[in-house]
Design a protein around this nucleic acid. Sequence first.
DNA 1: AGTTTACTTTTTAAAGC
DNA 2: GCTTTAAAAAGTAAACT
Lengths: 204, 186
Amino acid sequence: RLRKWQERIRTKDAGERNLQFALSEIDRMASALGVPRSVREVASVIYRRALDEDLIRGRSIEGVATSCLYAACRQEGIPRSLEEVSDVSRVEQKEIGRTYRYVAQELKLKMEPVDPKQYVPRFASELELSEEVQSKANEIIDVTAEQGLLSGKSPTGYAAAAIYAASLLCNEKKTQREVADVAQVTEVTIRNRYQEQIEAMGIH
Amino acid sequence: MVDPKETINIENVVASTGIGQELDLQSVAMDLEGADYDPEQFPGLVYRTQDPKSAALIFRSGKIVCTGAKSTDDVHQSLRIVFDKLRDLNIQVDDDPEIVVQNIVTSADLGRTLNLNAIAIGLGLENIEYEPEQFPGLVYRLDDPDVVALLFGSGKLVITGGKEPDDAKEAVDKIVSRLEDLGLLE
DNA sequence: AGTTTACTTTTTAAAGC
DNA sequence: GCTTTAAAAAGTAAACT
């Protein structure tokens, strides 16, 4: 019985250590991403739920922790792309993506698709674009998405194209490369989305 | 208006069978022209037929997987070619090995563009998977028939996981009526 | 900038690690 | 879980011309 007791303590300690590691990783990655403390709290809650539901079996602690942070950013309305999240994690992007889908499905997180507008303030401020450009970009996103242009497109590329278009329309031009760099998409993607959006807007 | 069911096209049929005899894949690889065999990478030997086009994965146990065919008839035709090639190598092959269709991949067109965002909400976020950052298609799993549908913004879709051609027709019917009920078609 | 090639998702069997 | 095979859908990406 002493052996069983020791084993239980050992298991409990290991579990505690793992949880501590996961939470400290969430904290480290959240800091690196510059997201507010509330997002870390949400990520921690999701991680504990994943732990309770035994979703970590067969998966790496850091993969689940990173996925929880990705989900938390989205739930809080300040999304980080999988590429941005993988940049601060030692888990590869593909693994984060599939673990996130698994956790979201199992915990029934009912994650809504990311609204490209949620990327506008951050990308625009990194590009030092005015409030006027941001409003224009938001308008472009709303009007073109309403016409069905958003289906199947990545939110970052969509936001990047709208910001590029808005910067031209407001005479605060940024190059496709500058916008592509902050959004972490290619110029080709911006070009393709831009053409569609401008046509749908009726070429202002 | 075209019935979406009439746009259904079988794109791939996967089937399994067996010759009822164990094989020495090393010697089969030596004698069979065009055979790819790298046991370090994968335990099966790959043999491709040209007409009909398909790929057969032949295993040491004598079991065979055929994939790439465009119809169940093509699967039988391809496997007949594989069986005869093995017989040419003086390998005993059962007279009429049972061939089991394991998966049918189908494509179709609903004829209207889709607002995947609205469909995701309409079908229920807990019933679908839609992550355009990772893949442009919306994943919708059906219970009856037991298949998986991938819906795209263009209105085109892929049905996979079915065991018989009619599974795709049933699936398309159910998807169309569900989208119509939700007012998300046209 | 346009083309080609390639990877993302789903399904499914097989044998082995 | 992975490895391999085929196929479609549409988006994204990288390497070339």
